[in-house]
Design a protein around this nucleic acid. Structure first.
Lengths: 348, 348
DNA sequence: ATTGGTTATGCAATCGATCGCACTATAAGC
DNA sequence: GCTTATAGTGCGATCGATTGCATAACCAAT
């Protein structure tokens, strides 16, 4: 019985349903399509549906794709799955897409635009209806490929300078301002910045946010070091450079939690304490940074919601390809924890 | 020029290549297929390839899928993308698949078998060549669906009691034994266990490993509490229950890092210190647990490698569908950090 | 009774690649 | 010189759903 059913499931085709119901394929197709069923008499619709049920029929998505040119498939390109920031984004994208009946082709494109392009071309060859890129550089060659190919594309987390595509990102500029205002409010005067890669919007916008906020507070924004990638190693190296170049800093505003954790490592190596000697603010509020030592004060980004919003934007674009490329900034929020305090109280 | 090229790319079809090269579609197809090109004269092969290059031809994967029944697509079902354990696994799977020219359809199936089944059926309808399930319960109804449908499937991270499918998991039994031996070696006698869900292999095997190791050390293995899911909240609740039911414990072996972190929270709530009052060992070595306070001693699982190995197993199965269902256990390794020490030294 | 307008359904082309089969030369064998 | 391989290509069916167009049936209105 069981195996008979699955046997049927494997071979149930529109043709077989049609024959068993005594109607033509096309009639069966229309009866099974909710959007077209109204053109068919209720009795036939019922008969066909029952037969489809009985045979365990499932429309062949591949065949349908070939005919219609649509696949109900969305490609998602990530820069680094090992970075804890991207899992929640992916989760959000997937949830919103699933709800709309789309599936998700996921690929880790790394940091190399050439490889990302190859991946995107592969995805396009697979006839994805749309693309979500979490890899965008400030001027992104990969997006050019997508646009040239006419594939609806949205950017998430990282934006381009010029908004050529719909984008959902965090309000990086304001987020960093929150961090600086917090530190300045505590009384810090000499604050350094751990900047992210300059080719990424997150790197440059947070840096500009830092500079603007520092100037607004009447402080000198020149103490900064640039990390070439968002990871602890780079963060530690950049912190070392920063501390060497700018002695006397009492606080660091990092553009990323992983960089902030790198800073933790460097402080430890130098026998300095956080927040005793140096206050540190991160950015992203990655999972678990609330439990590290000391708990990281950081700027929270609602990653899952960001992913959902990006998928939503893509769905709108799919529904209306002529739509404008909207840019949505998610508000950032400062989360106070233990890595910041008033300056000058020395070692704890 | 640019737009002409992409224009062509959009409409370049086997037919158009064939016409432009003055050969039949099928000849062009064979010339472009490395595995068949030898049946065609070198000159024709060259001519066709050049023309394909010129027109920017890419084989239509959809049409090919329809004809051949193969899609070079693998479905991956995860239980919880928000759990940091699964991103590295996904990463590993994706890397190995990409190398072999496969793409990855990713879906978060949650903890509900019914939803997981729906997702798997969706994936099968999309004609995936194979499936990777990270969701398996000890007796998994979802796997039954896959097997009935005749889709090559491998399990990763979680195994079934009865090995109906190829599986790559960590050696959970031995891993937990390492944890207990470590604690016993430090002198702990009253050790409790935070067990994971009993329906999961990770939950039950680690529990059995705990019990076996305790008995081997001549200790009483009866102090334990079960968490219904792997997260901090459940970990905290289970810890509370464990401490209440078994006063006098000096150490806890948790079956999961998130549960261990829940234990941290509960200790903090009770004003107890780790490792001063209580030593804690986790399981998984999730990202960042090396930086929490105190750094978590835990059992490391090579998640990315596990994902890669699972994908590898699936690729073998795809190459030879008749192959045996092998089960591969990845060795577990104890990572010593700051959350464990000799008992009885009271508050730090 | 004829025309006009619906409604319900059938027909057949289409999407693009793949592959078994058949055919034609040319080469090899006797 | 005649058969038998064999390499190189072409032909056309096929995968399964979709959809514009055609047709048939039916009802109402003039």
């Amino acid at each position: 019985m069981k195996s008979a059913a699955s046997q049927a499931a494997r071979s149930a085709t529109l043709q077989s349903i049609a024959e068993a119901s005594g109607v033509h394929r096309s009639t069966a197709a229309r009866a099974l399509d909710p959007a077209q069923a109204h053109r068919i008499s209720p009795e036939v619709v019922e008969k066909v549906r029952a037969e489809a049920q009985r045979q365990g029929y499932r429309r062949d998505v591949i065949a349908a794709s070939l005919r219609t040119g649509r696949s109900r498939l969305v490609g998602v390109v990530l820069p680094d799955l090992a970075n804890p920031v991207f899992a929640p984004i992916l989760d959000g994208v997937g949830a919103a897409l699933a709800e709309a009946g789309y599936s998700m082709l996921v690929a880790d494109g790394g940091a190399d635009p050439a490889r990302q392009t190859a991946i995107v071309e592969e995805l396009i060859a697979r006839r994805v209806d749309g693309l979500v890129l979490a890899t965008a550089r400030r001027s992104d060659p990969v997006l050019t490929v997508c646009l040239d190919a006419g594939v609806p594309t949205v950017l998430v987390n990282r934006a381009e300078d010029e908004a050529r595509a719909a984008t959902v990102a965090s309000d990086d500029f304001c987020g960093m301002r929150l961090a600086v205002e917090h530190l300045a409010g505590l009384g810090h005067r000499r604050i350094g910045h751990l900047a992210g890669p300059e080719g990424l919007s997150t790197g440059i916008l947070r840096r500009r946010g830092f500079e603007a906020a520092m100037l607004a507070a009447g402080l000198d924004p020149s103490a900064s070091a640039v990390a070439r990638a968002y990871n602890r190693t780079e963060g530690q190296a950049a912190t070392a450079a920063l501390l060497d170049a700018s002695p006397g800093l009492t606080a660091i505003a990092a553009s990323n939690d992983l960089l902030a954790l790198g800073a933790y490592l460097e402080l430890k190596r130098r026998g300095l304490s956080c927040p005793g000697n140096l206050s540190i603010v991160g950015h992203n509020d990655m999972p678990l940074v609330d439990m590290i030592d000391p708990p990281l004060t950081t700027v929270r980004i609602a990653h899952a919601e960001m992913g959902q919003a990006a998928a939503q934007l893509l769905l709108e674009k799919l529904a209306d390809p002529a739509a404008e490329a909207t840019v949505k900034l998610m508000p950032a929020e400062l989360v106070l924890r233990g890595s910041t305090r008033e300056p000058g109280r020395g070692r704890h």
